[in-house]
Design a protein around this nucleic acid. Structure first.
Lengths: 150, 150
DNA sequence: TATGAAACGGATTGATA
DNA sequence: TATCAATCCGTTTCATA
């Protein structure tokens, strides 16, 4: 069971969600505790798995991956074992994989360098997982991965 | 024009994408440069906007937001101005907003505490943006936000 | 754009309430 | 679980190649 989160922990999480490299000193100022108390709390949140790690946010364009798409998957053989994520995880272009309720079984979010890269990826997905695909190309991203209202 | 990324910059980005709080000292060891050279490169990547910031990764369950869904939007009035993102950005449950090609105009990724929270959010989205919605509930997340293959 | 050295400040630990 | 104080280590800047 995950213990209840105290308001101070929520403040810490909120700050780190938007500013992942914030120093303990700054964090301490913001939440009104000593540096070492904040330090202890962050370590505890990491151990409990509430804090799962830290990521740099990269600009897809500048990094050479300007094309984002959603690909939804429908199994071709309904009797096949449901091991699609394992079959797909080796493809680094797939950033996220969600198992979903509804007409399709999975939704993937992918990032590629070009339309040809997307075509190539779709072929690999179909081969690796024996699925039908439906692709929705992202035109622009008004906002993405905003910190949750913790 | 965004200048071409050097291989050392790519190594730095790769490391920071998966370990956003990595120290400059560690980074320097990994890429085989001095601490101050790495420091300069990271600052330059930040200024150029290749590095857009740093985020903590939070566990949705433990943070009290166990329900994720995708909501796609179709405008009701085809003559209405396309200002949907602005109309929706005040809703903190919406983590990402993508403008897409295809049948629908936008795809949202949202996070809420419960089915009732989702119902409530859908009502707010319809009211704020005058759109029809189609919702796909996420059952589980085999993987999410993996670092891109920079 | 790289380096090493110096100065500074933040991280970490331990004793304690 | 909090604090303070001490130590340690990373960050940042600067002079230089």
């Amino acid at each position: 069971m995950s213990a209840q989160l105290e308001p101070i922990d929520r403040s810490i999480l909120r700050e780190l969600a938007s500013n992942g490299r914030c120093s303990f000193t700054d964090l301490a100022d913001r939440v009104g505790l000593s540096v070492s108390a904040v330090h202890q709390r962050v370590r505890r949140l990491e151990q409990r798995g509430v804090l799962r790690g830290y990521s740099a946010r990269l600009d897809g364009e500048q990094v050479g991956l300007p094309l984002t798409a959603f690909i939804s998957l429908t199994p071709i053989d309904p009797a096949a074992p449901d091991d699609y994520p394992q079959r797909l995880q080796h493809l680094p272009q797939i950033e996220s994989c969600y198992s979903v309720a509804g007409e399709e079984s999975y939704i993937l979010r992918v990032r590629v360098a070009s339309p040809v890269g997307l075509e190539d990826l779709l072929r690999q997905i179909r081969e690796a997982a024996k699925v039908a695909t439906r692709t929705t190309v992202v035109l622009s991203t008004p906002f993405e991965n905003r910190p949750p209202a913790v």
